[in-house]
Structures are given as C-alpha cells and as structure tokens.
Design a binder for these strands. Structure first.
Length: 482
RNA sequence: CGGGGUGUGGCUCAGCUUGGUAGAGCGCCACGUUCGGGACGUGGAGGCCGGAGGUUCGAAUCCUCUCACCCCGACCA
C-alpha cells in the first residue's frame, strides 16, 4: 500500500528495480504506452518529438554522405524472402503474414516487411545495368514488423520505426568501406547527439544478420551496466545480388554481380537515451535532441504578480526562441512551481529557468540544470546570450558522465571463474575468446551474457581464451544485454 | 508452447471466503483560498464489476464455459 501510494508521485528507484524504473519513466514522461495490440506501442507526442529530432539529424547525415530517400512497399511477396536461404531461415519465426485480402484468400501470401532487402533488391535488379549506375545509395524511413514474444516499450516491440539504408557497389572494397562508414556515422550520432559513448565492432558469426557476410554494431552501456546494441551495419557481400540476379556491366565489358550493404537504427534509440542517462527523477535528455531545451517556470503570488511575472516570462520565451533554443513557457495556472519542477525533471528538459518576483527585483533569473542538479542565478539580459553555451556545456557534461560511468564499469578479466562471479554485477568485460561458436554458446548458457562485439579499435593483444585456453588474437566485449 | 497470476470508474486497487442499494485513493470538472521543490477546502461527473450461460426471490460475490492481459522459462533493430 505504501509502495503504491508513493508510486503515484515518485518513480521506483533505479537501484531497486531498473526494468520497472524504465517502464515507469517511459509511461510517466509520456514517451509511449502499450497499445491494445500486444507488443505494439503507441508513441505519444513527446516521445515522437524526440524521435523526430533523431530522424532530422540522421537524415541530414545520410544526405551528407550521398544517400537518397525512397520508399518501398510494406507488403512483400513471400517468395521474395525465400530467395536468400539464410535470410528466410533467420526471419521466419518472427514474420507476420497476410493470407487474405479483398475478401478472399491470396494466391501468394504477403509478408509484412521485417526488413526490406528482398523487395529493394528486386527493384535494384531493374535499376542497375552498368557500372555507371553504381554506387546506388538508398535510404528509407519506415515501419517494420518482427513478431516479439517478450516486448518492452521501445527496446523490443513487434512493430517499430526505423531507417534502413541499402546500397549497391561495384567492388567488395567499396561495399566494405560503406559498411564501416555508416557504422561511423551511427557512432558519431550516438556520441555527439545522444551523448552516449559507443563501441564499434564486428558481431560474431552467430549474431550476424541473416543474409550478411559480416555484421557490425555499435554497443552502448546502459545505466545498469547492461549493453544495448544501438545500431547495425551489414556487409552483405554478393548474397542478395546473386539471389536477385543483380549484375552490372563493367567498363571492360564484363558482367559482374554487385556488392551490397544495409544498415539501420530504430526507435530503440529512444530506449537507449532513457536508459543511458535517466536517473531516479526521470529522463535526462541531451540538449541537442531534447524536444524542449529550456522550460520557463513562472513563480508568483496573486493576480498582480502573475501579470508582471508572466509578461517577463513571455519576453524571455520570445528572446530564447529567437536565439535558437527550443523553449516552452509553462504558464499553467493550476499547478504550483514545485509540481512543475518535478514534472519537467521527469521529462528530462535540460535547462529550467525559474522566474519569480524576487528574481525580477534583482534583474535575475535562476537556471537549473537537469544533468547535474545545479542551480545558478544569471542576470536576465545575459540569458539569451548564454543559453546556447550552457546547453552545449550540458551536452558535453552528459557525455563525459556517461563515458566515465562506462569506463568505471569496464573490466579486463582473464579468469572464467572470476568472470562468472562478477558478470551479474553488470558492466563490460574485455576477455579473450577462442572464436568458436561452441565457446560462445557455453558462455551464454552458463552466464546469460553474450559477446557484444569484437571492437574494431582493439589493439592486437594475443592471449588465451578464458574458457578453453586456446589462442585468441584480441579481446572481445562480453556483457549482459537488452 | 509449459508454470504462476489478474480481470471492478481514466489509473492503482478494496469488496468475493459467509450472495442483499457498487466503494477508496489518485486523476478529472466547478468555485474559493493558495503558489520560491509534488497545496488545501467544498461541491460534482464518471462503473450494465472481461464475456456467455447457470443456481437463486436476489449474483461483482457461488457453479460451468469462454475471452483477454500480465509475470517466469527457448529468438531478435
């Protein structure tokens, strides 16, 4: 009873029950809620605004790197998926299939896209004839459906929104470069915009995308020390080109199969943001992505003060918007300031500006920072000049905090016994692994932890597999994951 | 698919054992007092108790069937 009473006001503490904290934050900050269809979520305006911020930045980065947006159909003939053997095998357990339409049974069932390689490569086979058509750099923003048994808002839902890039190249080298380049774009986005440090690396054979030659990922550490795959980039080799017979004529006149990549990030990134920075007060959003960067909370007693304070707030709102800050003035009269402070903290707004009669007398306002809880007074006329600076400081502070937190919880371990003892405490473990699927599965079965990836930047550091003692060229990241 | 559980105003739940006029807190609406860290008072709106059938003078409560959802074990951006 006590617990439920407090629940109405306070969030479950992260240290008590992190998953429950996550669930509560997502719903109470009005990012999303469960829908009547199990596994599907309703993304509410505040959550969608956050996704739109992400989309807008990423879309710019894709265009900057030469990609063009297009849109391919939601429904894919089932036979298309069957053309690439590994692809259909990997995806079949999570497919939703349309068998009836127009009041009758369909000749051929349509799969609701779980990803679009097949329908896109079918089109590419018509688009590509010559080396002059290459590289072909396409991106699409879309929804996909992958049937989920254990859904979690944003992290694992049956339907989710994402972006999928699909490219075709003349050579294996070019395709490989594209794969790595887009992985780098994701890493840059994660670090510079989401303020989340990530580790770029290769997935193991077992974890790679169904139909890929190699899968690369960026892995981020969440507030509880678990890993989250925040983006993937696949080197598809010629697998799809062969399955869909996509050949081009080279300058020398020979006929060659093209080389492919695909890469994607999804609304899972919203979950990553929540879990990487959030605290017991709620969300903590990085200024560059926050839908509201500064919120103005007026403080007043009585009608007379209300008029004066709101007028000052209105001027400040206009000035802040002019200087480029996404600003909201919370002029609701039915809530007191303390309530608003808590609500905007729950929603993760980076900077709160408190404007009361005492401040106005001194010609000042109070700035309160979400990421470190600090408050300071500032002369009114300096606010607009300084706001972008303080937001950038907050952005940087948030990244540094996340980086320090990850470094604190990254361990180099050589003994499997020690690993087994410590893995439940969370964190990234840098360990030697002999490269076999058997050992990988043994680790997962015995500890529930998985090899997240093999870092690209790992130095050569020969050693012995902590499980089998067999030789290992470099360390891999092992962690429990989402 | 195996094990456990829950369905009662928007939300969290009580009531069910032992049938007898549907309740509480929060939220919502109105008015007033408040307003520098989650305000208070007064009044008010809102529910065929998941669904179907049965027992009974009478069912949220007992019986049967059914549906849905949640939690725990095998895949995944």
């Amino acid at each position: 009873m006590d617990l439920e009473d407090t629940m109405a006001e306070k969030l479950t503490s992260q240290s008590v029950d992190f998953p429950r904290w996550y669930q509560e934050v997502v719903q109470r900050a009005q990012l999303a809620e469960n829908s009547p269809v199990r596994g599907s979520m309703i993304i509410r305006p505040y959550g969608y605004a956050l996704w739109e911020q992400m989309q807008s930045v990423l879309d710019g980065m894709f265009k900057e790197t030469g990609h063009l947006n297009a849109y391919f159909p939601l429904l894919i003939p089932e036979s298309f998926l069957r053309k690439e053997a590994e692809h259909i095998e990997g995806f079949s357990p999570e497919l939703a299939i349309v068998t009836h339409a127009g009041g009758k049974k369909l000749e051929e069932p349509y799969v609701i896209r779980p990803t679009s390689e097949t329908i896109i490569w079918d089109a590419f086979s018509n688009w590509i004839q010559s080396y002059r058509d290459l590289p072909l750099l396409i991106n699409q923003w879309a929804n996909v459906v992958r049937w989920e048994m254990r859904p979690r808002l944003f992290l694992r839902t049956t339907e989710f929104l994402w972006q999928e890039g699909h490219t075709a190249h003349a050579t294996a080298e070019e395709a490989h470069e594209e794969t790595i380049r887009m992985l780098g774009v994701y890493a840059q986005f994660a670090e510079e915009y989401m303020a989340i440090p990530v580790i770029q690396g290769v997935k193991t054979e077992r974890e790679k995308f169904a139909g890929a030659v190699k899968t690369y990922s960026i892995e981020a550490m969440m507030g509880d020390g678990k890993a989250l795959q925040a983006g993937t980039s696949h080197d598809l080799g010629q697998n799809f080109a062969k399955a869909f017979d996509v050949k081009y004529q080279s300058a020398e006149g020979t006929e060659e199969y093209v080389w492919a990549t695909s890469w994607g990030v999804s609304t899972r990134l919203v979950g990553a943001l929540v879990m990487a920075h959030g605290d017991d007060q709620g969300l903590v959003l990085p200024p560059r992505l926050a839908p509201i960067q500064t919120v103005i909370v007026p403080i007043y007693k009585g009608e007379e003060q209300r008029g004066v304070v709101l007028e000052a707030c209105g001027r400040m709102e206009a000035a802040l918007k002019d200087s480029g800050a996404r600003t909201h003035l919370d002029d609701r009269d039915q809530f007191r300031p303390g309530y608003k402070f808590n609500e905007w903290e729950l929603k993760g707004v980076p900077v709160r500006i408190e404007v009361g009669p005492r401040d106005l007398e001194k010609g000042e306002v109070v700035l309160a920072f979400r990421h470190n809880g600090e408050k300071k007074s500032l002369p009114i006329e300096q606010v607009t000049a300084q706001v972008m600076n303080v937001l950038e400081e907050a952005q940087k502070g948030l990244f540094e905090k996340a980086l320090a937190s990850r470094e604190d919880r990254t361990y180099t371990v050589d003994s499997y016994d020690e690993f087994k003892e410590r893995i439940d405490g969370g964190g990234f473990f840098l360990c030697h692994w002999d490269g076999t699927t058997e050992t990988e599965e043994k680790i997962q079965n015995e500890t529930k932890a998985t090899i997240r990836n093999i870092p690209l930047e790992a130095p050569d550091d020969p050693g012995q597999c902590m499980v089998t003692g067999n030789p290992s060229a470099r360390r891999v990241i092992i962690s429990k994951g989402y």
